[in-house]
Simulated scan of single mutants.
Amino acid sequence: MSQNKQDIPSSYILPDSAELTTSLAENDRLQKIIDKKRPLEGDLWDVIQFKLKVDWTYNSNAIEGSTLSPSETLFFLREGLTVKGKPLKDFLDARNHSEAVDLLQDTIKDERPLSVGFMKEINALILNGVSYTAAQTPDGQSTKKKAHAGEYKKHPNHVLTPSGEIHTYVEPEQVAAEMDYLFEWIGEQEQKQTHPLITAAIAHYNFVRIHPFDDGNGRGARLLMNLILMKNGYLPAVINNENRQDYIECLHQADKGEMELFCVFVSHSLRETQESVVNILEGNGK
């Protein structure tokens, strides 16, 4: 997929700025600190990994509307017990996301290549047990539609933006070609040794831009992003629910061609994850 820059779609052009370069350097510095402290004695690293999975599961699902709190998510994933008064689907989403993170870990250990087929598996896992998904009518009204887990969408999907406009994603008949291009592009960036965070952030954005499935696209995009980071030795960039508004705004700006803002946002999210782990490791050392 070798192309001249003028032939590359605008959503795939690599951003370059002093702010982004500085932010990436800080990610690399923090990752080196973490790597130097490993291997750890006892089961501390396993505990850290579980904490990251819980944080990632809570925040990614909360962004999509889950009502579980961080402590309820932890209790459910650790004990397997639900909490009264919360929708069953929220626990189903927590279980599915947790299992998807486990699948990512196995994929990295097995050195399985990224592919559109793998993302279909991820979507099938995210929507496991989900019969219907939330949707919007053309005039922005809430409705439901039958879920087709692991299958590309058969009908157009759209969302009401913060500005009040209805944004339509890639048409169903274009999804297969767009997804093939996305994963060819990811492979090419790996060969070029593009910084993994830039590859991960742009892959995330384009996955959301395509919106290939009926549901689970946001969670799938964050799983894809973090799989790219984790394959390259980084921690996952956990996007916190409290930053949801900034997250959506950066994605909206990327729709206008401002990809740098989203890359910096992802870099800052990774830094928050890294700093939390460094604090645990340094506290343990003391």
Rank of each mutant, 00 (worst) to 15 (best):
E111N: 15
Y234I: 03
D214P: 04
G187L: 03
V47C: 05
A177Y: 03
V116M: 12
D28L: 07
V101N: 14
I186M: 04
V47R: 12
H252K: 12
A147D: 11
R29T: 10
L20H: 03
F262Y: 12
H148G: 00
L103H: 13
I198W: 06
T67C: 00
G150M: 09
V159R: 04
R222H: 05
D102R: 12
A147F: 06
F213L: 07
Q136P: 00
K146Q: 15
E260L: 08
L281N: 10
D106G: 11
F207S: 00
Q105W: 14
S163R: 08
K37P: 00
S2W: 03
W45F: 12
T194I: 14
L270E: 07
G257Y: 08
L30D: 04
N96S: 13
G220Y: 02
E121S: 14
K145H: 04
P196M: 10
E275I: 14
A254Y: 02
E121V: 13
N206G: 01
W45Y: 12
Q193Y: 06
P156D: 12
D106Q: 15
H195K: 07
P39Q: 07
K146P: 02
S142P: 14
P15F: 08
A254L: 04
I33M: 13
E79T: 15
G42K: 08
G187I: 01
Q3K: 14
N27H: 00
E26Q: 07
D106P: 01
T137N: 11
E260I: 07
L44V: 11
V278N: 08
N279A: 15
C263L: 09
P70C: 02
A18E: 11
P162A: 07
Q193F: 02
G216N: 05
G117Q: 15
E79A: 11
F207M: 12
G164Y: 07
I34V: 11
L74C: 00
K109H: 14
E184I: 06
R95K: 14
V175P: 04
A203N: 08
S115H: 03
Q3L: 15
A149G: 05
Y58E: 08
R219V: 09
